[in-house]
Design a protein around this nucleic acid. Structure first.
Lengths: 196, 196
DNA sequence: ATACAAAGTGACACTAGTGTCACTTAACAA
DNA sequence: TTGTTAAGTGACACTAGTGTCACTTTGTAT
């Protein structure tokens, strides 16, 4: 009934992601995005009233994808298996950290749509946090996780590891295996833990 | 011999730091800085030709301060003691992570001065890395650190922990103690480490 | 007192982004 | 073939930053 679109939503979100991760939130402009999509800047305003709206829409898309994928993990396995799967999963979505970081940078929403998106993103965020908390609870019930460590520290560390820059390009298998080992049993040899 | 300055270098670097950490590199402007210093924008150009130059100067200042402080740590103590001191030190300089992050965001330098600064910052960075490496080596020689874990992972994790957001405001002592424990002996109880 | 030098100012021309809107283009249905 | 409709365009007015520069201010040495 109308003419064909020159770009898909997926394409737009892909370019948006690259621009934001590379240059940061503030440096993202409609001009840059439009030129990457091979389209005029004006046409983007047909779909999004401004930057906040576009970016909040993008973040919803990313979070939804992440959570959908997360739901596919084997929730009935024992803790050790889930722990392994979870770390692998986090590394597969190694950009989620940057994405979550952007959420904090959105200023006060200017349109109702952006406001709406922002609160839905918060819901996603909470839902994600609760799922991770459930995972930690399982580890506690199975008696594997040390009882006195607070959830916030455990989750914080698990999340933060994906942001560690692999400057020396250690092969991914070795990298992930090392991190799993440190998280579960630490950097120190067993017999040196008596002192402290 | 000339009139009094309205702001000191320290004051300028302090405001610069707050602006950059809060808004990010791209959103930093001479206008914002000038208004914080209660001075006109034009006067800043008396000292710095442009943003890159100002920020590279700021980064040198921060790195120098960090390294000077770092040198005061007790380098002759045993590894366990140094480990404790190092983690405490990193948390005291909890902004160093953001600062290091900014280094990566500086674009190609436009003036000789900025170019100079950039290479001196690189030297600082390398010197810092080497000192940390020396620390890890000590841990290996004393037989405390697991021999098969790569330096890059150990240092990466130690550095990254300061960036873990303490959303739930766990008291600092508990927070740091938990992180020290996880780094040294992991999240799991000793007897659950037999499997896998 | 006076003159000088560095500190500070504000106006100027310039660049690059924003948001809008009347207009053109193209797919499709009648 | 023609009308309709959404997609796309590019020019316009606006905002906010940049870098420059002639000029004013002020502390101090002579």
């Amino acid at each position: 009934m109308a003419r064909e679109r020159k770009f898909t939503d997926e394409h737009l979100f892909k370019e948006t992601k690259e621009l934001i991760i590379h240059d940061g939130y503030e440096a993202f402009t409609f001009s840059k995005l439009a030129s990457r999509l091979g389209v005029s800047r004006g046409s983007l305003y047909k779909y999004y009233d401004n930057k906040d709206e576009l970016i909040s829409e993008f973040l919803m898309y990313e979070m939804a994808r992440f959570l959908t994928d997360f739901d596919k993990l084997n929730k009935s396995a024992d803790f050790q298996t889930q722990f392994n799967e979870l770390i692998d999963f986090i590394f597969k979505h190694n950009n989620i950290y940057e994405v979550l970081d952007i959420i904090g940078q959105i200023p006060a929403p200017t349109t109702k749509r952006a406001l709406n998106n922002k609160s839905r993103i918060s819901e996603y965020y909470i839902s994600m946090y609760q799922q991770f908390e459930g995972f930690i609870e399982l580890g506690r019930k199975e008696g594997i996780i040390k009882a006195h460590l607070p959830n916030a520290v455990l989750l914080g560390m698990i999340f933060q590891i994906i942001a560690i820059p692999n400057h020396f390009n250690i092969p991914e298998h070795e990298w992930i295996a090392s991190i799993k080992e440190i998280l579960s049993s630490g950097m120190f040899k067993g017999d040196s833990l008596t002192g402290k």
